[in-house]
């Protein structure tokens, strides 16, 4: 969920160059951005790199944000574009087989999740959904936002969110069942 702070006020203070405001803003939003990058980016991208890229863009373009009240949806839009770029790059790397050889080192504790068989199957199922469907699933189901909150964040009408959520649930169930995940869940 979004941080429970006065983000708009913090953005204004950061734009006025107030000492520490930028760091506070980053500190509060980093967990949210990192979670979005992991959940929406998938295992093919480096979520850490993506989150870093998102926050660098946020900090360098903070001056251009017209309405600080819209900071959350602005950050979500940046995250969405950065993730799309990272996914394209990952696909390109796979296409040209540019990825490094798999490491023989055990995965870092924070990356262990994407090595499990269940996670792999879930990602395959999610990959069959559109990016828009993945977004509403993560925002509404996992992060427990209301449909209205998700609609504001994504920047689409409420009805669109509801429709996408409904379709996404059905589709995920079908795809999960096809991969042997749905039955247990």
């Amino acid at each position: 969920m979004e941080p429970l702070i006065d983000t708009a006020g913090l953005v204004r203070r950061a734009r006025h160059g107030e000492a520490g405001a930028e760091d506070t803003l980053v500190g509060h939003w980093l967990p949210t951005v990192l979670a979005w990058c992991r959940r929406l980016g998938g295992p093919t991208i480096d979520a850490e790199d993506a989150a870093h890229d998102v926050l660098v863009i946020v900090l360098t373009r903070l001056e251009r944000l017209r309405e600080p009240e819209c900071f959350a949806s602005w950050v979500f839009g940046i995250t969405r574009r950065v993730l799309a770029r990272h996914r394209r790059r990952a696909q390109l790397h796979r296409w040209f087989d540019l990825r490094a050889e798999p490491s023989t080192m055990p995965p870092a504790p924070d990356r262990a999740w994407d090595r499990t068989e269940e996670a792999r199957r879930l990602w395959l199922a999610l990959d069959d959904l559109s990016a828009a469907q993945r977004e509403v699933l993560v925002l509404c189901e996992l992060e427990e936002r209301t449909d209205a909150q998700a609609a504001r964040l994504i920047g689409v009408p409420l009805g669109t969110v509801k429709r996408r959520l409904h379709d996404a649930r059905l589709r995920l169930k079908v795809e999960a069942a096809r991969r042997g995940l749905g039955g247990e869940a």
């Binding site: 980093l30 967990p31 949210t32 990192l34 979670a35 992991r38 959940r39 924070d110 999740w113 994407d114 499990t116 269940e118 996670a119 879930l122 199922a125 699933l137 993560v138 189901e141 996992l142 995920l172 999960a176 995940l181 749905g182 869940a185």
Partner: peptide
């Protein structure tokens, strides 16, 4: 299902 996804 989605609880399998990692967060921050």
């Amino acid at each position: 299902l989605l609880d399998l996804l990692p967060g921050s």
